[in-house]
Design a protein around this nucleic acid. Structure first.
Lengths: 222, 222
DNA sequence: GTCTATAATTCGATAGAC
DNA sequence: GTCTATCGAATTATAGAC
């Protein structure tokens, strides 16, 4: 995919141009969504010619795919006590949301663009899922000797499968991002970082660990 | 179609046409979002001429405003014990989401259309907020005599204000709708109705009642 | 009330000069 | 590599015949 041109000095400017396009594209996609973000407007933001965008990225979909490519950069939470898992992950999500416009662009676009929706699905299945599985494995290693003769399932920490837990985390994380950054619901947008962590933390903890009912009682869910 | 002889009442056919347009508009807006849903496609679904849509509703924005007008129809939960509040409201939300396409249309459109976003904000501020306030009032009526000389604030049930609680409920409710109906994340879309209520219920209860920490301890939210 | 024709924009994408 | 010019398609919206 890298440039085959062997020009030593010429290749550097094209990289700068390419980066400028991507930055402008992320901002436009984040602010306007996929269809309302036009190549013309992106080019104008990057102060280049619209035709250059086509030359560099081929078409609009490939430009979006390049602009929305990113990593959740999930931290390793294996060492934390169970009660702090949600707060730590929530805090990390807040950092990622506010430091990088890619996620906002992806969220806005994924509502109407199928490519973006695919990437969003992959994000939680391929990145959050394994992190939860790793979490369960480290917890299970201590408990496995006690439960001994149980099923040979990988995650003994909870009967709820990893994908479901990742999906539940997604509902709260994406819902918060939607209300705070996209819809800008005043009470949600005005929450301080500490308040947000305090509210979402216990919820995310419960979903991460696969605990259906709240602390006090083991409820039957009929 | 062109039955002129059997006109029993005056403007009845125009009402039918109007209703057919609105139904088709709701489906298209829900499936494609605001910009990708075209008047042409809506008219085709309603098997009428595109020009008629303009004649009945003026322009696309007014058509959307008419199509996305609806009521959350929130039930009165005052009589329920606190622990069941979230499950009851979650169950009600599931009914509304699956029975009426307006909410999906509004959610999809509100991501890129400012009119739709305004309506979404109003929805939670003007409908969910008062319901929570009423909930707090009924709870406070029993406790007010005990706390006696306290502040004359309306909701003595929690120190968290009503708008914040409504916003928090919105993050979980809309996030679930986004993941289940719009993004179609497999683990979320595959949850049974009972599972969804069991997972979201405790979360919604905690937000509704304004309880920052999970059951065991009364944490300070500083 | 209904439909045809079309105006007026806007957008993604291409061709080709320099 | 860069930019001008433009094509072809799609859209909202209007004007006017029947």
């Amino acid at each position: 995919m890298t440039e085959t041109a062997a020009e030593t000095a010429g290749g550097r400017r094209s990289d700068r141009t390419r980066a400028a396009i991507l930055t402008a594209a992320r901002e436009r996609f984040a602010a306007d969504g996929y269809e309302r973000a036009t190549i013309r407007a992106i080019a104008a933001d990057a102060t280049i010619d619209p035709a250059m965008v086509m030359r560099y990225f081929g078409n609009k979909e490939k430009l979006f795919a390049a602009a929305a490519e990113f990593d959740l950069r999930l931290p390793d939470l294996s060492a934390l006590p169970r009660e702090e898992l949600g707060a730590a992950l929530t805090s990390h999500f807040l950092d990622r949301w506010e430091g990088d416009e890619s996620l906002k662009a992806l969220l806005r676009a994924s509502v109407t663009n199928e490519v973006a929706a695919d990437r969003m699905r992959e994000l939680f299945a391929a990145q959050l899922g394994p992190m939860i599985a790793k979490l369960s494995a480290s917890t299970a290693s201590a408990a496995s000797s006690a439960t001994a003769g149980g099923a040979n399932t990988v995650d003994a920490a909870s009967s709820v499968d990893v994908a479901t837990r990742a999906g539940l985390v997604a509902t709260q994380a994406l819902g918060f991002a939607l209300c705070r950054y996209v819809l800008a619901l005043p009470p949600v947008a005005n929450l301080s970082r500490e308040e947000a962590v305090a509210w979402l933390g216990p919820t995310i903890t419960r979903y991460l660990t696969g605990t259906p009912s709240t602390g006090t009682r083991q409820a039957n869910t009929s």
